[in-house]
Design a protein around this nucleic acid. Structure first.
Lengths: 141, 141
DNA sequence: TGATGGCTATCAGATGGCTGATAGTTAACA
DNA sequence: TGTTAACTATCAGCCATCTGATAGCCATCA
């Protein structure tokens, strides 16, 4: 099949367009999409470790570490050694971090609603279901 | 809406999984997904310029330039100044480049078929159509 | 003719993703 | 007990992506 009609291309173009929109939406908060994703997981898992956060975000520990270094430099998160376990480092949002995350996440939720609006309930469910099936197939390859 | 159920996340996860599969498939040919995409366009547009190639791939000219530098270093493409126009640089695949691209592209086509197989004709058409609508909406944001 | 605007190529620097490698910790087990 | 396997954090280096900046070329038009 010609490359322009491949499923791979449709998925990639959709991701490119949606992530670019997310990046534009986040710009006013000084957060990147990757940072916002990490903070979203963190907001549900106070004191999580970097390795766990990496697994939740489906990136490597190294990638997550570099994101965390930047968030720590900006005072969005703080990392403290685990009191009992010598290797682990616990991660928490600072007060300022929680504030900026709450605002940014509301903005992202708004964007998501805008992107979903042109689709009716059934279409949205179908799209999510089909994307999930494609993801599962891809992970086996 | 909670972040785990957002459309943005479904699209991102699907892209992550499919592009990772593409990267694994291309590894034996020594090509990255970005390089393969650029070569796919180039195979249909002999003598195209870097700026045009960037637009076709929907990346910035700077990004395309760095990809082209690597492809040129590896002898996959060659760049020659336009005979009449002082700024333009024409891009062509070398003989070796055409060979490796043909093999790699066949492998990608095969992967795309595998990813599409679990979906019937109607589902595949629906998925592409819905992704296109989401992309169009995102570009307006 | 000459100035201006638009386009091309490309350098620099930041972010985010990967693989590979290293060092230290913990836990399990022979 | 001591060794080993598994896990954690993190350094280094590569690729792809972006924005911003620079320099050169071309075409148009006052």
């Amino acid at each position: 099949m010609h490359y322009s009609e491949r499923l791979l291309g449709y998925v990639k173009r959709a991701e490119q367009a949606t992530q670019a929109a997310k990046e534009r939406a986040l710009r006013e908060f000084g957060l990147t999409p990757a940072q916002q994703s990490a903070l979203a997981i963190l907001s549900d898992h106070e004191g999580i470790t970097g390795a766990q956060l990496a697994r939740e975000c489906a990136v490597t520990p190294q990638t997550m570490n570099s994101t965390l270094v930047r968030l720590e430099r900006r005072g969005i998160i703080e990392r403290t050694p685990h009191p009992m376990h010598g290797t682990l480092v616990e991660i928490r949002m600072t007060r300022a971090g929680r504030k900026v995350f709450a605002e940014a996440d509301a903005r992202v939720a708004e964007l998501d609603a805008v992107l979903s609006k042109p689709l009716d309930e059934v279409e949205l469910g179908t799209l999510k279901e089909l994307l999930t099936r494609v993801s599962v197939t891809a992970r086996d390859q």
